[in-house]
């Protein structure tokens, strides 16, 4: 029996160590989340602050939201943002998906180089991309025509350059997400379809596309979010007088931070949350087969 006692003590020590390390790990995790989310929570709270000051709490109000909605400049820039995001998402999702299929399914000369070039927009800083695009548009002289649209009675004048710029960086993100999905897809599924009398098009429509869909949706949502969020590229490529929401906010901040900006931020945060929820749900649905573990 005596031989057992030191063993028990040792195991008790080990248990204690384990507990301490668990508690400290939890604490560390909570600290991390606090660091990330405290500023966001503060923005949300102060968007309801009944005071011009952004430092002191002076009671609850929705005044700033009313102020925001009635500001026609903000509404126009919001529609600009949504319009650019929707159009560039549609275009970049199609091109990005095709690029992913080409890269994944075919072997050709210079593929490695093409691969690296395709993913470059993910790696290089936005500002570099923005300057490059600006130079391109200036030198080529294309893209500064505007697309006039009327949405719910609001007239928008969207420069093509902004849409082209957004498409340019979104293709890379769509391609990465779709390709991750494709690389996990079992090629024999397509052979099975062909073996069962489905021609190339039917195989694509009935098997390849449905299997790729979670990746395509995930890529599209990512592209939409990034487009909505973009400042640098829009700012550099839009020319004078065109504002998306982030560009508009930047312009307002130069005149001082007001609670109205907090309200806009909260609105954008809400939109992002909704998009991320959609993206998670679509990924989870697809994940029943094979999940993509990107981003």
């Amino acid at each position: 029996m005596s031989a057992i006692i030191p063993e028990t003590r040792a195991s008790r020590m080990a248990h204690l160590k384990q507990r301490i390390s668990n508690i400290s790990l939890n604490f560390y995790g909570i600290l991390g989340y606090l660091f990330l989310y405290t500023p966001i929570v503060i923005v949300v709270i102060f968007s309801f602050n009944d005071s011009r000051s952004t430092a002191q709490w002076a009671g609850f109000t929705t005044h700033w939201y009313v102020d925001m909605i009635t500001d026609s400049q903000i509404i126009i820039s919001l529609w600009n943002s949504l319009f650019v995001a929707i159009v560039s998402t549609i275009i970049s999702t199609i091109i990005g998906t095709l690029a992913a299929m080409g890269m994944e399914r075919y072997r050709f000369r210079g593929q490695l180089g093409m691969d690296a070039l395709l993913y470059l927009p993910v790696i290089i800083p936005d500002i570099a991309m923005a300057i490059m695009l600006l130079l391109f548009f200036n030198l080529s002289g294309i893209g500064f025509e505007v697309w006039n649209v009327n949405i719910f009675g609001i007239n928008l004048a969207v420069p093509y350059s902004v849409i082209i710029g957004h498409v340019a960086f979104n293709i890379a993100f769509v391609a990465i997400v779709v390709r991750a999905r494709l690389s996990q897809m079992d090629r024999t599924l397509e052979e099975a379809a062909q073996d069962l009398y489905a021609n190339t098009w039917e195989t694509f429509r009935k098997v390849t596309l449905p299997m790729m869909m979670p990746g395509i949706l995930g890529g599209a949502l990512l592209a939409f979010t990034l487009s909505l969020d973009d400042f640098a590229i829009t700012f550099f490529t839009s020319g004078a007088g065109f504002n998306t929401l982030p560009v508009r906010v930047f312009g307002m901040i130069k005149k001082g931070v007001t609670p109205k900006i907090n309200a806009i931020s909260t609105l954008m945060l809400a939109m992002s949350l909704i998009l991320i929820s959609f993206s998670l749900i679509s990924r989870k649905r697809g994940g029943e087969d094979q999940s993509i573990e990107m981003f």
Partner: peptide, 29 residues
């Protein structure tokens, strides 16, 4: 091409379509 040949294949790892039911799988051809 495979879809014009009068043969059918049973694959090593089955290659069943995961997004279809058993019925849809069998009815596919």
């Amino acid at each position: 091409p495979p879809y014009q040949r009068p043969v059918n294949t049973v694959f090593q790892h089955y290659a069943l379509f995961p997004h279809m039911s058993v019925y849809q799988n069998i009815a596919f051809g």
